[in-house]
Amino acid sequence: MKIADVRASAFAMPLHNPAYPRPPYKFYNREFFVITYRTDPERLQALVPEPLEVVGDTVAYEFIRMPDSTGFGDYTETGQVIPVRFTTPQGEVQEGSFVHAMYLDDNAPITGGRELWGFPKKLATPNLRHEQETLVGTLHYGSVLCATATMGYKHRELDLPSFARNLDKPAFMIKIIPHVDGSPRICELVRYYMEDVTLKGAWDGPGALQLFEHAMCDVARLPVREVVSATHYIADLTLGLGEVVYDYLAPDSTPTL
């Protein structure tokens, strides 16, 4: 194989049989179950990286069922996102969220999510199911239960146009790729959006969340002080590709967009 051929065909690892296809990545009937809760603000400050700013003292704990996604298949994901604020070099203030932790059960979106965007994905066993009148989410890391969430099933229907505006906000994450000597080669703040969103339904209801300590699955690092809300919604969408908004390894360490 010639050098020019490597350059032309290289997209993702492995070279001759990539773990995931090229984008775009479309999701159909993506089901979200989100518990928003209050936590320790000092812990939030310790976890959220500059130049992002923490907004308030809340965390969104999410379970997401993805039964039909192009390239990534059928899988379930769970994790924590933190409300933040980002100020661009032009002075625009953006409200969004920082993706702190993600656990899922499918190799392709784990590798693709980490390599393309920098999603903090780890292999685990999340589950989202309907049990009679209750929506139930659980997370096991190996054999150990790390999270349990419950919500009354479709108690109140939400206004879709108002709720959909929440889905327009960006999300941020840290993309880290090491050099062959173990030093950081890429360390960037990445921003992405959900695109072409078709919201099919949204509901709220009573909710509860329990998080349990685990050495390798640290969801309990942001403990539950009070549940604020529980929402459940279903949508079709395209996962937009990311853009670098800050390079931590740049000599001047200034935002790039």
Rank of each mutant, 00 (worst) to 15 (best):
V54S: 05
L222T: 02
S183N: 07
L189M: 04
N107A: 14
K121F: 10
E115M: 04
P161F: 09
L199K: 10
R185L: 14
L199P: 02
R22D: 04
P178V: 06
T87D: 00
D218Q: 14
N127F: 08
P14A: 05
Q94L: 15
E53M: 02
P184T: 11
D106Q: 15
M66Q: 13
Y20E: 08
A235P: 00
L160I: 13
L257Q: 05
K154Q: 14
V99G: 03
H214G: 06
E92N: 08
G182T: 09
S97A: 15
A250D: 14
L257S: 13
A215C: 01
D105C: 00
G56M: 11
Y246M: 05
Y25V: 01
W117K: 04
T148F: 02
A60Y: 11
T148I: 05
T148V: 12
L257D: 10
G118A: 06
V59R: 10
A208H: 15
K121C: 06
G91Y: 08
P206Q: 15
D159E: 09
P170C: 05
V34N: 12
H100A: 13
A230G: 15
A124N: 02
Y28R: 11
A108K: 04
Y37L: 00
S143D: 15
E92A: 12
L167C: 01
K154Y: 03
I176Q: 11
T70N: 06
D159V: 02
E95A: 10
A60C: 05
L123Q: 08
F172S: 05
P206E: 15
R38Y: 13
P184R: 11
G152Y: 00
M13Y: 13
D196G: 00
P223S: 06
P161G: 00
V34F: 01
D247A: 12
E115N: 01
G240F: 10
I64Y: 04
F86D: 07
V180M: 13
D204E: 15
R129G: 04
T254C: 01
N17H: 15
E95W: 05
M102C: 02
L199I: 07
V224H: 03
Q90F: 07
Q90C: 03
C146Q: 08
Q94I: 14
T231C: 06
K122H: 14
L211Y: 12
Q94D: 10
V144N: 08
P255V: 03
E213M: 05
R43E: 13
S69C: 07
S69F: 10
C146H: 05
E42Q: 14
Q45E: 14
M173W: 01
E92Q: 13
K121Y: 15
N127P: 01
M173T: 15
K121P: 01
V6I: 13
L257H: 11
L47D: 04
K122T: 06
A101T: 14
G240D: 12
V219W: 07
C217M: 02
N29A: 01
A4K: 15
L15K: 08
R38A: 10
P18R: 12
S183R: 13
T70V: 06
L47S: 02
A202Q: 05
A230F: 01
E95F: 09
C146G: 00
D106I: 01
H232C: 03
R114M: 04
F32A: 06
K26H: 10
F119G: 01
V34S: 03
L241T: 10
Y61S: 12
H232I: 00
G201V: 04
Y37N: 08
G113R: 03
M151Y: 11
